[in-house]
Simulated assay, not measured.
Amino acid sequence: MTVIQGQKPNILIIGSETTLGRHVREALARQEYRYTCAASVEEAVSANRHLGVDAALVDMASLGAPAGLSLAASLRRALSHLPIVVLTSAPGVAIAFEAMRLGATDCLRAPVSPTDLREAVERAVRWRRSAAGRAGALDRLAREMSSRTNALVSACAESGMGSSVALEEWVSALYGRDRWMWDHVRRVADLSVLIATTMGADPRVVAEIGRAALLHDVGRLAIPAGVIQKPAPLTRDEQTLMRTHVQASYEVAMSLPFLEPLAVTLFTVRERYDGSGYPLGLTGDSIPFGARVIAVAEALDSLSPEDADETSVAEANAGLVQGAGTLFDPSVVRAWLRYLDSGVRRSACY
């Protein structure tokens, strides 16, 4: 186990004998972070016990995907409140999604710039500071959602998962007295279905997108009300906490079999077409189709609520056009404009 002293938080590095790993060590040293290199979960636990570590970086390129994923899962079980950042050079997003499912809190894909690394480490350290409060809220959310599982499964037994009535009743009950949020997610679901249908998506895909849209903000229920309702600007720690809502949505969906197909879409609804979103900074078509559709639908509802006048609607559409290619997928924006021009009005069904 190697320990390098510095002035900033202590970062644990597991699997660092690759070009990527060496690059990360050098970048941490230049930024005056302390870092500790470990070769196993046992060494990581020992380092945390004797030295104290603030975040872990797991180099998947050094360990290989199966071993790296297994190690990340074991590390999460052993050190439940330690933020884990996975480093990968693998193409696509499959490894990142699986790592997040197993408990990683962030993922960096090569090439990793010093700025990317610094920001990821800062996010991880802030995540640790807020983890205790978030974990309690997430546990309460998971228990509440689990308590409603039997009712939803029973309601869907005859009509299947496509039953909008069963799903709407369950989600409506989940949001409780927050009628504004319930109305918002229902409108976003309707808009998402209309856009996906206009784009010619398979009816099963359309239905899945509608269900994901209905649940796209469910992770926000895990965030303390004091943060959600705070009238003043959020602190950096509070902003970090807010961003964990997609992870909360993902974790809850993966824990319930009937929601599992929606998990990836729920996890990526805050990604943006130009890579400026979170949590993975995905770009273009690497963002799942459903997430790209929901991003446009949510922007529409935020910019032009249900009772908006014609001027507000026109301004909302202009905002979408302006954001096409940066915040939004241009093909999704074009589909919405085609729908408006068609004069056809469909009923949403998900």
Rank of each mutant, 00 (worst) to 15 (best):
L256V: 02
A248D: 15
G277S: 04
L241A: 06
P257M: 11
P261F: 10
L241I: 07
G281K: 04
T240C: 14
E260H: 07
M242Y: 13
H245S: 05
V246Q: 04
F258L: 09
R270H: 14
L256M: 02
G284I: 03
V246Y: 00
D285V: 12
G281A: 07
F258M: 11
M242N: 05
L262P: 15
Q239G: 00
A263F: 06
R243E: 14
Q239A: 00
S276V: 09
E271W: 12
D285C: 10
R243F: 10
H245C: 06
Q247S: 15
R243Y: 08
T268P: 05
L280C: 07
L259W: 04
A263L: 02
V246P: 00
P279A: 00
M254L: 15
R243C: 13
V252Y: 06
L241N: 01
Y273A: 02
T244A: 10
Q239M: 03
Q247M: 13
M242Q: 12
L241W: 07
A248P: 09
T265L: 05
S249F: 02
A248W: 10
G275H: 00
S276A: 13
R243T: 15
L282R: 12
R270I: 10
V269L: 06
S249K: 00
F267P: 00
V246N: 03
R272I: 02
S249A: 13
M254H: 14
A253Q: 13
L256N: 01
Y250P: 12
E271V: 11
D274F: 01
R272Q: 03
L282G: 07
E271T: 06
G284L: 01
L266T: 11
V252M: 11
G281E: 08
L262F: 04
P279T: 00
Y250T: 04
T244E: 15
Q247D: 15
E260V: 09
M254T: 14
S255D: 12
T265Q: 11
D285I: 10
G277H: 02
A253M: 10
P261Q: 03
T283C: 01
A248H: 14
R270Q: 15
Y273W: 11
V246L: 03
R243Q: 12
S276W: 08
